[in-house]
Write a protein that binds this DNA or RNA. Structure first.
Lengths: 136, 136
DNA sequence: TTTCAAATGCAACATTGTTGCAAAGGTACG
DNA sequence: CGTACCTTTGCAACAATGTTGCATTTGAAA
């Protein structure tokens, strides 16, 4: 779907930073970090606007955020079936060699057997290792 | 086990920053963030030394690091049976209400059914929700 | 006790993210 | 089309976490 239609569908204003961010994420088939997105957006880039846009897009269920490691956060488009109520709960794979992050849409972790009284709302799973290209 | 014995056992120098960090982590039954550890260590505290010590202790298999969220990293003692080769692979629970992190030593996630060619070396699982005290 | 590699502590810097506020821009309405 | 209004942007300043270089100190072995 086109970026402008996605914003329309969620009743968000069609501003140029939001359109640029969505188009950057759609341009590659992998989650991107802020630095990678800002590169694709060129010169006219503001970090505050980026973070505020990401928050808006995440709350609307358009993107999701993946915390890979201490200093590495990546952002990815959601599939159309995910909304703010219906959170994506797939696992992510991080390749220790090529440093790429891959959404494993078909891997749904859990359920987990927690001690009595614990209530789960969501789970974040990062599997690390070597991807299919780097393990050869 | 005493902090000084732990360092001895791993053939690490028994320096005061390392001893203070281990004692801080042992003083409570929960993973701590840098700010929480530095509080317990009092005035004589240096952030560079802290991070370098944590790296040494992690590589030795004495502690492990848990990335809870974008800007929240916690550190916890390993059980004696874990070494640098034998990584701890238990899940962690983060309470969205009281913000405490709990090691679920008995919850061992996986195995995961990954696409062909993917090799797993480790997995990090953060389950979020309400802990037994906050769900009442 | 002496020696020396390892570790500390300081300064400076890097990255990621947040807050306040004035200016600019999108959208609805006439 | 133009205007009015509320949202969003963009800038500056700040905050938290983590890293690098280098001189000084210190643990531990001889």
């Amino acid at each position: 779907m086109q970026a402008i239609d996605i914003l329309q569908q969620h009743q968000l204003k069609k501003t140029s930073p939001r359109l640029a961010i969505i188009e950057a994420l759609q341009s590659v088939d992998a989650p991107l970090a802020e630095a990678e997105i800002s590169e694709k957006m060129g010169s006219h880039y503001d970090r505050t606007t980026f973070y505020r846009s990401m928050q808006t897009l995440e709350e609307a269920g358009i993107i999701h955020r993946i915390v890979v490691d201490k200093q590495l956060v990546k952002y990815a488009m959601n599939h159309v079936e995910f909304t703010s109520k219906n959170q994506p709960d797939h696992a992510h794979f991080f390749c220790n060699n090529c440093k790429k992050l891959i959404c494993l849409e078909e891997v749904h972790p859990g359920p987990y057997r927690l001690p009595t009284g614990f209530q789960t709302s969501e789970a974040e799973v990062i599997i690390k290792g070597l991807c299919n290209k780097c393990s050869k």
